[in-house]
């Protein structure tokens, strides 16, 4: 074998080894931002899954609708439902709005239904959270009673970890 050919083979091996080393390092090392992304996405996923589960279970009709129709303190009941549905370390706050459509102007107005106390943390807005996610959700009421069927709820749920 001539001297130059060995060099070329060495060269290719060196380049290959360097590339493989970098790929291995990349695979075994998380991206710098990924920790943050993954954890907040879990909160979002949790929030949406929770809201969807509530929808399937008819919680909005049973708690929000019945509460508003009967004038009872439905916010406490909602807070209880959220508390028992979420891990204890998660802080939450829910806001509930009713959407009104104007067929004349085409405008949508938001009417807040809750009293701002569907939360497990006093002064939620002033608290410093390490990680938090806010998701918004629409829910068309399909269950009884008839006089609210078709109402569109707009729900904002904030989940986070305390500081």
């Amino acid at each position: 074998m001539r001297h130059g050919q060995v060099r070329i083979i060495e060269l290719l091996l060196t380049a290959f080894m360097m590339a493989v080393t970098i790929i291995f390092v990349m695979n075994f090392t998380r991206p710098i931002k990924s920790i943050y992304i993954r954890e907040t996405s879990d909160l979002r996923r949790l929030a949406y899954n929770l809201l969807n589960d509530f929808a399937t279970a008819g919680v909005y009709e049973d708690v929000i609708v019945q509460g508003n129709l009967s004038g009872t303190n439905w916010e406490d009941e909602m807070r209880l439902v959220l508390s028992i549905s979420l891990p204890p370390e998660i802080l939450f706050k829910m806001e509930v709005y009713e959407l009104h459509f104007s067929p004349i102007t085409g405008d949508i107005t938001y009417i807040r239904l809750d009293n701002g106390r569907i939360t497990n943390l006093e002064n939620f807005d002033q608290e410093k959270l390490i990680e938090a996610e806010s998701v918004s959700y629409t829910y068309v009421i399909v269950g009884e009673p008839d006089k609210v069927r078709g109402t569109v709820l707009y729900i904002v749920l904030v989940l986070g970890f305390g500081g």
Partner: peptide, 15 residues
């Protein structure tokens, strides 16, 4: 994945 496309799509579809 981080913005939970599946859940958002699921929510929109269900509603």
């Amino acid at each position: 994945r981080s913005i939970v496309v599946r859940e958002v799509i699921g929510s929109i579809t269900a509603d």
